[in-house]
Design a binder for these strands. Structure first.
Length: 792
RNA sequence: GGUCCUGUAGUCUAAUGGCAGAACAUUUCCUUUACACGGAAAGAGCGAAGGUUCGAUUCCUUCCAGGACCACCA
């Protein structure tokens, strides 16, 4: 074979494309519903349709795919479906951005159609990204969370929870995003540090001034009381008196409460309806008046008088101006503080009174903790995130969204008695805006209904993924698939997806939805989390284009489960180097290896030592993989391949391969074939393309499986192992290394012929492989004595 | 403020109660019949202080530095 030809030899794009097509056409990853093999089921995360696949996806999906491929080779009938989470606010926002429209400016129907058309066009492209990185899902087991199929299951979930008494419609203040114009749940609220101003404003008490500091002067018209801390002596004298609110000239009571912080601002605080959570607590505790100053689209109400209709920020400015003019603004401090924003759009959250549906679950905290502790967490400490979240829960789950593109509520309200009319389970899915309930109101007999216009929170549907997945197969099989074996996901959505899925499953079925949880980390760049706003994004498509999917996956296997990884191109380059190296190693092996491979009557000692070493690797790698520590398996396999198999064994075996006796060759061929095959199998979960390529090129003639990915995970070789094997092999490698060192020091080629002097004891130990040593270091002879290398 | 994770060569990582192993970068060498997108070799490292121990990078405590999640946010 020509030298240096490898450059052009491996066209990874063509090769990867070829095997992708082959896998799809032959259904290599098809779930076999008739198989008797034990099932291993995965609750695959359905990617949110909010753009293209990003590097974090490539990272975490690769990691779950390693596990899946391992299990498949271990003989499990793998159930690995694929879904897309394509309803709700994320998709709406994407469509709004791409199509440059706003949902509220068009009819509901038109917007929904726009979303649907968009998905039809974009989804195949999106899913292709997952196929491109070699995800071994059965893509025929597919669900979309906006499909009728998913609507049906999601609506069923609603009905079931309703019947179980877990659903409530409340007319109460709740978190509201003025930008998206919808209620949101606690989990969607995020911190954001913003610059603001602490404004010291004068309130009058019987003509005297008291100064109140606030960041939100625009809420003055909604002021309902003023509080100071119970222990604060400075303000005690005002107890029971009334304070006059500036600009608006009405009076509010002055009260004491321990929730007021004497060290903050001036130690006295105004309480406005729905300014923040404490305000709401005070409202409830003291039955304060409710004054709504802000509308649902973030403007001032008529309460604000001349400021009515202004946007929050404009009203703030205008009122501060007026206060200043009136001499009622005595001080302004610039501060940085954290505000709650909507995680999808970054807009500051308001509290707005509105009718919303809730899943009532705050009473179940104890049970939630118990459910969480019954899961097997990998790594174990990820459970703390779940516990921490449960302990901090303060709101029931707000599930109604005043949006369009989602699963509709399967309910109507009686126009006369306001009774809730549930859809018939058999009729699901329903769209109450188009469909009518069967029959009359069960309570008053009226037959005039008002549909619920809201849609369900997207997590309400995605928390049903185990159901969405298993209902794709026959009823009979479903029992075997639930609870599922594994939930793989990244740690940032433990509080979203994982938590909600557990809750739903427990409420519906009184069972955890899965047994194991494998949590992956995320990708950083120069130590920082990647994000579009920071602009430090690496696109996996670009990386794959440059280095191939195998290389990208190789990189993804470099971090242990749960650990974040810093993206560095050199690690992907290492992956590509591995691909080329193993391709060349295979070429060497099969260049010489002809005819049938048979087990030799007697295994050459060196070969036996190599296989013993492989046995060790197999044992360790399997153990690692069983506990989802794929990174260890990959490390062990690669290290063995590179530093033992190619750097040493291939060199050691050359003489026998080129010019050995029949027996010597027989043993060498057998060992070469099977050790390479083992490496191939160990690496197949990580680099599925190149291993498939080599399998088909060289092994397929000898083996019966149609794909490397159907081959069984390697078992240890049945050879006689002895106690000193490891030590003996290491000694051999050590001597070789020492000789190479001498050659390098003397600026000689590794092939330079030498006379080697070696301690008697070592020569004795290496007795039966001394010829191999002689061959590999090109020693004319080996003498007894202190270690020495002489050049001839 | 609460909870958790992480500090290992210039960079990025791995393992481990007793020689800390790779990769990239640096330097030197080798045109060798699988591979120059290669091979051989060199230098270089356990955040700080205590404690447990015959022995600590590893276990414990404190501190320092990063990061994440949660809460607060007048």
């Amino acid at each position: 074979m020509d030298k240096g030809k490898s450059n052009e030899d491996y066209n990874f794009k063509a090769v990867e494309e070829k095997w992708r097509k082959f896998w799809e056409k032959e259904g290599i990853y098809k779930f076999d519903s008739k198989s008797r093999k034990e099932i291993f089921s995965i609750d695959t995360p359905p990617p949110t349709v909010s753009g293209k696949m990003h590097i974090g996806h490539a990272f975490s999906y690769s990691q779950q795919d390693f596990i899946v491929r391992f299990k498949r080779m271990k003989g499990f009938n793998v159930f690995y479906p694929f879904g897309t989470d394509d309803n709700g606010v994320p998709t709406e926002r994407l469509v709004e951005k791409v199509k440059k429209v706003r949902a509220r400016d068009m009819t509901r129907e038109k917007f929904i159609k726009l979303c649907m058309d968009f998905l039809k066009q974009e989804l195949p492209k999106l899913i292709q990204d997952w196929k491109n990185i070699g995800i071994s899902s059965d893509f025929k087991l597919y669900y979309s969370t906006i499909s009728d199929y998913a609507r049906k299951i999601s609506q069923w979930s609603f009905l079931d929870l309703y019947k179980k008494g877990r659903l409530e419609r409340r007319d109460a203040p709740s978190m509201w995003c003025p930008e998206c114009q919808t209620g949101i749940s606690q989990v969607e609220a995020k911190d954001k540090e913003e610059e603001s101003t602490f404004n010291h404003i004068v309130f009058k008490v019987n003509g005297k001034d008291i100064i109140i500091a606030t960041t939100r002067p625009e809420l003055l018209p909604a002021c309902v009381a003023v509080f100071y801390n119970t222990i604060d002596e400075n303000y005690k004298k005002y107890k029971g008196k009334k304070a006059r609110v500036p600009l608006f000239n009405f009076q509010v009571p002055i009260m004491e409460d321990e929730r007021a912080d004497p060290d903050k601002g001036t130690g006295i605080v105004m309480c406005c309806t729905f300014g923040d959570q404490t305000d709401m607590e005070w409202q409830r505790a003291y039955q304060l008046e409710i004054k709504e100053a802000i509308t649902r689209d973030g403007r001032m109400t008529e309460l604000a008088g001349k400021y009515k209709g202004m946007k929050i920020n404009d009203a703030r400015k205008a009122m501060l101006d007026d206060l200043k003019k009136a001499g009622l603004l005595v001080k302004q401090e610039k501060i940085k503080h954290f505000v709650n924003v909507h995680e999808r759009c970054g807009t500051e959250i308001e509290f707005v009174k509105s009718k919303q549906w809730f899943v009532r679950y705050l009473d179940l905290k104890k049970e939630m903790l118990e459910w969480g502790s019954k899961l097997k967490w990998h790594p174990a400490y990820m459970k703390y995130r779940y516990d921490n979240w449960v302990n901090g829960l303060q709101w029931d789950w707000l599930i109604s969204r005043q949006r369009y593109f989602g699963v509709p509520f399967p309910i109507w309200y009686c126009n006369k008695c306001h009774n809730v009319i549930l859809a018939d389970e058999k009729e699901l899915p329903v769209d109450p805006l188009k469909d009518n309930p069967k029959g009359k109101c069960g309570k008053c007999g009226h037959n005039w209904f008002e549909p619920e216009k809201d849609v369900l929170d997207t997590w309400f549907t995605s928390s049903m993924t185990p159901r969405l997945a298993i209902e794709l197969v026959s009823k009979k099989l479903q029992e075997k698939l639930f609870p599922m074996d594994l939930r793989p996901q990244s740690h940032d959505i433990i509080t979203f997806w994982l938590f909600n899925t557990v809750i739903k499953s427990q409420l519906h079925y009184k069972k955890n939805p899965f047994r194991d949880v494998a949590v992956s980390g995320f990708v950083t760049l120069e130590g920082e989390k990647m994000s579009k706003s920071k602009g430090n994004i690496i696109e996996p498509q670009v990386v794959m284009d440059k280095f191939g999917a195998d290389a990208l996956r190789f990189w993804a296997a470099g971090s242990k489960l749960g650990e974040d990884i810093n993206y560095e191109e050199k690690d992907v380059v290492a992956g590509k180097r591995f691909v080329i190296k193993i391709l060349n190693a295979a070429r060497f092996v099969f260049m010489n290896l002809k005819g049938k491979i048979e087990k030799p009557k007697k295994l050459h000692e060196l070969d036996r030592l190599l296989l013993a070493r492989i046995n060790h690797i197999i044992k360790e790698a399997t153990k690692s993989f069983e506990s989802y520590e794929y990174a260890r398996c990959k490390n062990d396999a690669v290290n063995f391949f590179w530093s033992i198999f190619t750097d040493n064994y291939l060199e050691l075996v050359k003489r026998r391969v080129y010019s050995g006796t029949k027996e010597e060759k027989e043993s060498a061929f057998y060992t070469l074939y099977h050790s390479l095959f083992t490496i191939l199998k160990l690496m197949a979960p990580f680099t599925p393309f190149i291993t498939e390529e080599i399998y088909h090129k060289h092994f397929k003639n000898h083996e019966k499986e149609e794909s490397i990915h159907h081959c069984s995970w390697p078992d240890e070789f049945k050879i006689k192992e002895e106690k000193g094997d490891e030590e003996k092999f290491d000694l051999l490698l050590d001597v070789i290394s020492k000789v190479r060192h001498e050659k390098s020091k003397n600026k000689k080629s590794v092939k330079a012929e030498i006379i080697l002097t070696l301690e008697k004891e070592k020569i004795n130990k290496l007795k039966d492989i001394i010829q191999d040593l002689k061959d590999v270091v090109n020693a004319k002879e080996i003498k007894e004595g202190d270690f020495k290398v002489e050049f001839v």
